[in-house]
């Protein structure tokens, strides 16, 4: 676990020790080790089928590990059913109870613990205020918008004061604008409450912007764990480089042509500069351009292959067909292992 930020003085909120979950021949989760520190905002990032959701369900108790141990605040959870884990989930489809109004939905966890109606309704209203749904207690889930349902699901989980909050692609069903607003809100909520958040997503932007640390999943294994900037700037494998952001994955021949050692490497488009043809040894021709708003992505074809360069807005742009020179920022080429 070279990349994990160890927290030696505290019991980790969640700890996986060589955890596997196999469904027949399918290895959904395969030998995963990870620690999530208390109070951390932890993201599990990966394409669908990479095992991240299964990991979440292993923590909540809806799946049982085929092998390995999962500790929640130091306690082996192997014999604890979901209802006795002080861990709550915000489900991808929210899973609100359709026959209850918002207040009863939120108070549900308190009700099954035997807390009387007045107390639990008061607490429900309190938490509804936190998610800015003060006047919605009497509505049924069917009468709410997607964003509002998402907040109810969040309130329903938070009212139980969980030790760990699990979020399964909670923003996936929202439109772009709402998603960005909710990202900020979730982040500030997590900081205010200090609860450990474990967040599953396939959207690397979401993971990078919200999480304290990110685990990138591929084929049931963790490809890399680290802070967003570590994962973004120093991807360890081709998969991570490719999946997180829009790095150039550079083949050994290309790496050599770019002035590095002859090995697989990653190269961020924004760490390359375009120069006039005569001012660089590394030369190519512009074959395509895509305007992105904050900049323009320029595809440059070299004798050994194609590479993508980000030209920030405001800088002069070449024309398609132009011959250009390239300059790399110092240490821009990151070696990748497991090519």
């Amino acid at each position: 676990m070279a990349f994990a930020t160890d927290t030696p003085h505290m019991t980790p909120a969640v700890e996986f020790q060589s955890v596997s979950r196999h469904f027949g021949a399918v290895r959904a989760v395969d030998g995963v080790n990870l620690t999530v520190a208390e109070g951390e905002f932890f993201a599990m990032l990966g394409p669908s089928g990479s095992g991240k959701t299964t990991c979440l369900r292993l923590i909540s108790g809806f799946e049982k590990p085929t092998a390995g141990v999962i500790r929640i605040f130091g306690q082996d959870s192997g014999n604890t059913p979901p209802n006795r884990r002080n861990v709550n989930t915000v489900f991808q489809d929210y899973a609100l109870f359709p026959h209850m109004n918002v207040r009863d939905n939120v108070a549900y966890g308190l009700m099954v613990k035997g807390i009387d109606r007045r107390t639990r309704h008061a607490k429900a209203e309190e938490i509804l205020a936190v998610v800015k749904l003060d006047d919605y207690g009497d509505r049924k889930p069917g009468q709410l918008s997607g964003g509002q349902r998402q907040r109810v699901a969040l309130a329903r989980a938070l009212v139980n004061e969980p030790q760990v909050l699990l979020l399964d692609e909670p923003l996936g069903a929202l439109d772009l604008k709402l998603r960005e607003a909710m990202q900020d809100e979730l982040k500030s909520l997590q900081q205010r409450l200090g609860i450990t958040f474990i967040f599953v997503t396939h959207d690397q932007g979401e993971a990078l912007s919200m999480a304290d640390r990110v685990a990138v999943f591929a084929d049931g294994k963790i490809a890399q764990i680290g802070t967003p900037s570590e994962v973004y700037t120093r991807p360890r494998t081709r998969f991570v480089a490719d999946f997180v952001g829009s790095s150039n994955v550079v083949a050994p021949a290309m790496a050599k042509a770019l002035g590095g050692p002859e090995a697989w490497a990653s190269l961020r488009p924004e760490s390359i500069r375009l120069l006039p043809w005569s001012k660089s040894e590394i030369r190519g021709s512009v074959t395509a351009m895509r305007y992105l708003g904050s900049g323009t992505r320029v595809a440059v074809t070299l004798p050994v292959g194609e590479i993508s360069v980000l030209v920030p807005a405001g800088l002069p742009l070449p024309n398609i067909g132009d011959s250009v020179g390239l300059m790399l920022a110092p240490n821009a080429l990151h070696p990748l292992d497991g090519a």
Partner: peptide, 20 residues
């Protein structure tokens, strides 16, 4: 640490035992 004890809730009654 105090929080440690709260991560796993106690079993209450027969219903919980059967569910488990």
């Amino acid at each position: 640490m105090m929080t440690t004890n709260r991560a796993i809730l106690p079993e209450r009654g027969l219903g919980d035992r059967l569910s488990a």
